[in-house]
């Protein structure tokens, strides 16, 4: 539980000034090339033909439909992610059971698998030629190339984020607080709301922000299951691609700039949550270190 702030002065003593400046300069050059310039390009292109065209592109019914669908997907995926993340983190950190390590590893799977494959899984499962395809078709249920498919694919890609943020924190916190609450007579529900949740809320928020950002921006997996039906199964990132392919650059960049704004907002919120989380973590670390060895 090192204080990350302690690293700075430590390194300063070891590196000579020219090397330090070289490292900082190359980091800034890299960020400019891959972050600032592309961001600038997006905004310049979006506003190239004036604010009026930008607003027109943003208000286009197709764009509006894409935004609505993306918001719907986020609204459906987010509660499930929180629920799953809490359950997974709780069971992994509070109980001992067979296959615990396997579960911990599997949670990371969606992050390591290419999004194309994540999407294909659902096509192979629920598509017309898929394992469950005929049964679904005979019951008039559409999953692939429809909203349920998009929701499933997004869910698959985003579910690890909450659990991944919670597990290390909950492991570090241990069970002492919960066991104290039990011995004081609290029930499970009271323990969760009044003890566990306050302890993990900033990490939970951090996970929610990350998974929301990914859910809004997911392209690959959604592209595979979407079927690209205009006004029906087009999310915002897919909409940007379509506009771009149609040489409608101003509109493409206008919508893209909306996504960029969401990212910037996410980044800001993430930083805030991270800062709060670290505060709490340091406080706990300080308490822990009071005890010395254990």
């Amino acid at each position: 539980m090192n204080d990350p702030r302690a690293v700075g002065p430590e390194l300063k003593r070891h590196e000579t000034a020219p090397i330090r400046w070289l490292l900082i300069a190359s980091a800034i050059a890299f960020l400019s090339l891959f972050l600032f310039i592309p961001l600038l390009v997006v905004f310049i292109n979006a506003f190239r033909d004036g604010l009026a065209l930008f607003l027109a592109a943003a208000a286009d019914p197709q764009t509006a439909a894409a935004i609505r669908l993306t918001l719907l997907v986020v609204a459906l995926v987010l509660p499930l992610n929180v629920l799953f993340g809490l359950c997974a983190a709780w069971s992994i950190t509070k109980f001992d059971f067979r296959g615990k390590n396997l579960l911990t590893t599997l949670i990371d799977l969606p992050l390591t698998v290419s999004p194309v494959i994540s999407g294909s899984i659902f096509v192979l499962l629920f598509g017309a030629q898929g394992a469950l395809g005929p049964w679904l078709a005979s019951h008039q249920i559409r999953i692939v190339f429809a909203v349920p498919g998009i929701v499933l694919a997004t869910l698959f890609v985003t579910f690890p984020y909450v659990a991944r943020e919670l597990i290390p924190l909950m492991q570090a916190l241990g069970n002492d607080n919960e066991e104290t609450a039990i011995s004081l007579g609290a029930g499970s529900w009271q323990i969760f709301w009044r003890v566990t949740l306050p302890n993990i809320k900033w990490a939970l928020l951090y996970g929610i922000i990350l998974s929301t950002a990914r859910a809004i921006g997911e392209f690959g997996a959604v592209s595979v299951v979407s079927g690209h039906i205009r006004g029906k199964t087009i999310t915002v990132p897919l909409h940007v691609e379509i506009l771009y392919n149609e040489y409608n650059f101003v509109a493409a960049f206008s919508v893209a700039s909306l996504l960029v704004l969401v990212s910037l907002l996410t980044l800001f919120l993430k930083r805030l949550a991270e800062w709060k989380r670290q505060q709490v973590f340091l406080e706990n670390a300080e308490h822990g270190s009071q005890g010395g060895g254990n």
Binding site: D176, N177, E179, T180, I182, S183, L184, G185, A186, G187, R194, V195, P198, N199, V280, E283, N284, H287, G288, Q290, G291, N294
Partner: peptide
């Protein structure tokens, strides 16, 4: 534990932060 009328104090106090 909650029905045993027992108070337990942990080594690191486990106060609710």
């Amino acid at each position: 534990p909650k029905d045993r009328d027992v108070g337990f104090v942990f080594q690191h106090y486990a106060l609710f932060q």
